[in-house]
Design a protein around this nucleic acid. Structure first.
Lengths: 190, 190
DNA sequence: ACCTGAACACCGTTCAAGT
DNA sequence: ACCTGAACACCGTTCAAGT
């Protein structure tokens, strides 16, 4: 399928940009379940225009995540170059979790995306899962990660900890403490 | 404050029961975000009647959880009688997680309840946190749990794993594997 | 005292009319 | 080709009218 796309009319291109800016602000401030109508209003466009550019909330989200996603893939590349595979896995998981915390409420649609292949978030999610698997297997081959752990379990754990991270302070704990709890489970002892 | 309550008119009492039954079915089948209007319809009452009995979704939820909650408190009592405090903690956390999985989507309102004391779910949540703390401290005193771990972190971890548990199968992993990942982090080695 | 269902508010989504 | 905003649908919540 062609993905030609680009030659947007000047006003359309400007509107698209405005919508993305407003959405980034609102998603960051209120979480990803915030009202799309308000985003359209803040962007100074009619709600129909928002839907023309981003027919679903997931498509808008996917567009917003693109930057963070690319940064993450670069970090994956860096992790691959680390000698010690156990460390590489740890570095990767840390970067992954940071990505998953880009917006509050992000884990839920990402998880949903994995089930419904149709979602625009699905392929990128699959990529992240593949990278996790690749680095996990290498660590396991060197005996630096437990053989009993599956990549999907680790990935789900990362999603879960991102889900919880928003609320860590309110409960009197910290994101770091939560990460530490999770980080113990997959490494081989000592 | 008086909490006299009970002398309900016969029809009111019957309606209350019907609402609870319908809600239990719908919450179990669709998760706790399902439409209250549909629950009222399934119960054969007007929506106003549902709101008269349960002015907020959280109050309805709290009423539904009461049974499960009592069972859980009994399990806490049983855990306290176990000689080995590390085991007692493990048993408790297992029971807690099972409770948190009563309905899909339950972790979110429970977490929210801790922040807003006003919520009808808040006090019961605080109880669960207190029990976690009590059993954790005992395990720590015997050197069977890491001194660096906080009860709130463990509790948040349990909520997070309950959140993820719904989706474990879809991802090709299991609730057990996820639990195992989390279970490693708080015990002292060997 | 309690119930009902119409009414209101809010928001997601579509689409006819405009430029 | 793209935009606007009114229109529709859905659901949570309230309340006047009924018994």
């Amino acid at each position: 399928m062609d993905r030609k796309q680009l030659p947007l009319r000047a006003d359309a291109r400007r509107n698209r940009e405005r919508i993305l800016n407003a959405a980034a602000r609102h998603f960051a401030a209120q979480g990803i379940d915030t009202s799309l109508e308000e985003i359209a209003k803040a962007a100074g466009v009619g709600s129909g225009t928002l839907y023309r550019h981003f027919p679903s909330r997931d498509l808008l989200l996917a567009a917003l995540l693109r930057d963070s996603q690319e940064k993450l893939l670069a970090q994956a590349e860096a992790a691959r170059k680390i000698d010690h595979p156990g460390t590489a896995l740890q570095v990767w998981l840390k970067a992954l979790q940071s990505h998953l915390r880009t917006f509050s409420g992000l884990p839920a649609p990402l998880l949903a995306a994995i089930k419904e292949q149709a979602s625009p978030l699905a392929t990128s999610c699959q990529d992240l899962l593949s990278i996790t698997e690749e680095l996990l297997v290498q660590a396991q081959e060197e005996g630096q990660a437990k053989a009993s752990v599956a990549a999907s379990t680790l990935f789900l754990g990362a999603l879960a900890s991102a889900w919880a991270a928003d609320h860590a302070e309110a409960l009197g704990t910290t994101e770091e403490a939560l990460d530490a709890l999770l980080a113990q489970g997959y490494l081989t002892e000592k």
